[in-house]
Amino acid sequence: MNKLIFNEMLKIIRKRKLIVVVAIMVVLISLFTYAQFREVQRQIEKLGDVDWRTTLQQQIVDTQNRLTSSGISDEWKAQLQIRVQQQQYYLDNNINPAEPGAPTFVRSFAQESITLFVPLLIMIIAADIVSSERSAGTVKLLLTRPVKRWKILLSKYIALLLSISIIVVLMGVLAYLISGVVFGFGGWNAPVLTGFTSIGGELNTSNVQLIDQWQYILMEFGLVWFVAIVVGTLSFMLSVLLKSTSASMGVMLAALIAGLILSNLVSSWQSAKYLFMINLDLTGYIAGSSPPVPGMTLLFSIGVLSIWAVGALLISFSVFVRQDVY
């Protein structure tokens, strides 16, 4: 079994997929770092001040102004209201929500990338993991070995899990190193608040706890990793079911983008919360933003995602074991 897994890892590395993923990450993280840098410069220029309290107060005022405009949707309004109350809470407790430094960048980067960026990177690895063997014809060589079919598929799945893990960790490391050059490497112990919950558009601060930033980042990446695995497992299933790699990528991409669009619309469509793509924004729960459908919680989302992943695994294995290969 170890040898099989090793063999699968070899294939992933041979195809230079990890390199491609790393290259994409380096380019995009550099872009985001630069954009963030410009934003900071603009703030300093505009407010003539680097005191974070000034900036935060200004943000609160800006958000309050956006709240009063009549053109915005109720979902967005609720989201903004929660944000204002949260910012006010930070201000009242004299805690800087964005201590300058690379760790803060890493934190917000993970938060932004969980719904689309990470799933896309994972798809690069996962979408063709089985279907490419079929299109290249190598699947026959693989299946004629005296090894049970499910073992072959399992070795592929484990290799996928390992690649996903290293991609997520690499993302954190790269984000830290690249942004650190600009923002400085310190700030791991900056205080961060977590445990905000929103009930009916009101912010509930009774469970709020203060933790160090490194703890928060570790938790966040744990969630990013979980989402990556769920998305990876679903792509894996599509890769078993569909013969063409581009088809499985297309299906997955459509689902992810539909999820992004739906998240802004579904608050009145209750049963949408059982769709996996609505549940991807797990970091939102620990940051305390209001969920797409009222009543959703972290545990609920993890549960829904787990069910989808387990279902996908069952389908993958039962199909692959029985499939005719020609």
Binding site: S165, I166, G222, L223, L298
Partner: peptide
């Protein structure tokens, strides 16, 4: 990767 897997698993369970 195995190391990364374990660290991430820890982070997830801790969350």
């Amino acid at each position: 990767s195995i190391g990364a897997f374990l660290v991430m698993l820890f982070g997830f369970l801790w969350t």
